[in-house]
Structure formats: C-alpha cells, structure tokens
Amino acid sequence: MSLKRIMFVLVIAFSIVIVNSCKSDNSQEKHKDNLVGFQTTENLNDIDIRDEQEIYYRFPSAREMFLYINDEDFTYRTDLVNLPNNVDNYLDSKSKTLNLGVYLADLSYMTLFGKTGNLKKYMNAIAVLSEDLRLEIPYEKDIFIRINKNINNNDSIINIADEYYSKVIDYLMKNNKEKTLAVISIGGYIEGLYIAINLTDEFSKNSPVIQRIAEQKLSFENLKMFTYKFRNDRNASQSIIYLNKIMSVFNEFKIEKQATKIKQYKTNSFVIEGGNSIIVTKEQYMKLKNVVTEIRMQIIENY
C-alpha cells in the first residue's frame, strides 16, 4: 500500500472515530428523556441527574427588573453603584463572577438614567472581569472602538452600552455557561434590589415601586431554583447562601389569595386578572433593606 493510501485510510478512520464518538454520545442521550426539552444544558456533568428537576426555571434579567424604575419618578444617585476601581480587589473566581453581575446591573442603572460619564469605566471593569473568567465576549474590541469614536454622543454611548450588556448575557446563554450565568445573576439581582430599595425614600403601602420590589420575591425564587441545579459548584453553593438570607425575609411577606380570572378577547389575546398578591409591611420592608445592604456590602467588599 502506498503512503498516500495509508494516509487516506488513517484520516478517514480518524474522522469516523471522532464522528462516531459524537454519535455514541447522542445515542446515549436518546435513551434519556431528561436530555431533551428546556431543562437540559450542556453542563450536564455538573448536575446530579437523579435530582434533575423536571421543570426549567427562567427569570428576568437584572435589566428587565430595572425597567419599572422610571427616570421621571426618581433622582439618579451616584453613590449607589460599586466603584469601578474595586475591580482590582476581586482575586478569586467567586468575587469576580458575583461582581461581574454587580457591574452589569450598575451599567443597566446608568443607561436607564442616561448617565454616560462613567459608562466606559464600568464597561472596562466588566471586560477585565470577563477576561479573567475566560469569557470571550464576541466583538468586544469593536464595541470599545465604537465607544471611543462616540465619546461625545450620549445616545450612541447608551446604545453601545446596552448592546454590550446584551452581548455578555447572550454569550453566557448561547455558550451554555449557565452555571456562571447563575452566579452573575445573583450578583446582578442583589445589586438591582439594593439600588431599587435605596432609590425609594420612604415606605408607602400604596407605592407601585415598593409593590414591585416586594414582587421580586418570585424572581428570586426562580433564580434560586435555577441556581440550585449547580449547587455542587463551590461558587454557586456559596452564592445560594446569600439568596437564602434574602429569601428568608421575602418569605415573611404575606400572600393574599384571590382567584385568577381570564378574559379572552380573540383566539390569541387575553387578559389575566386576580391571583395572589404579595403584602409587605414597613417593618418587613426595612428588614429586607438591611439584609440586602449587608449582603451587597459583603459582595463588593469581598469579605
């Protein structure tokens, strides 16, 4: 047999081995029903299959959480965000991941209020932490080039910062880095809740913003259920401790039960009315504020 033929056979054989190893994995997957559907991730090795939940939990992003805060109703406070210089203090992967979430929430807060002065510093902090965590955000360099070109154009900078936020979150989701996403989201949720609570001066039972803050109980529950899948991971399990402390306060809130009603308008249009309401007292709200402030300090001060 000539050298060419030997090479040809070797290459084909090697290719077949690789493709078959893939097929073999797939065929294993086919025998496990829990490997199709929304609950699956590529990080299945990180999940204890026996305890795999049947239901997959989703939660709004920190930015979606922020959208109810209208810049017409609130005054922007510069003292509520984590200083970008603190990025050098985060040396371990847990503090890097949690504070990446904190800075992403800060970025959303600033863009929502149209504050562009420090956006680049915050984007730099996000870039440093994501690089340290080996997250390869697509077109990151291009985004920073565009920021430099549009440094005097507020609207463009806000759009670019928004785009950057989306790229980071989308990267984590598309690349099945949901374990990292869970810890980043915990940092972002705690920062988002801290900012929202501190933007409201006084407790008012009828304030729609305070009502929305109380309703974050449900989002925190889903985030906890989502993160619980990764509880064998050290960063995730330590972050769950923060969530549990906040959840213990949320769980004190009273639930007022009402029947849910549906008003159907067209075959594909309806209104959902009624359902359970969350009731929060001033004492409970202040307790939530204190616990969130304390945990947020622990995260940004890294102790």
Partner: peptide
C-alpha cells in the same frame, strides 16, 4: 431546546403586573 417527537417539556417564567 432540543425536542424529539411526542415529548412535553416545561419552564417557569415570571410575568410582572401591568
């Protein structure tokens, strides 16, 4: 997600008031 024929899968979302 990936689906095969005849399977049911579910996920829980949060929908906010108003």
């Amino acid at each position: 997600a990936l689906f095969s024929h005849g399977i049911t899968s579910k996920f829980v979302i949060i929908v906010y008031a108003n």
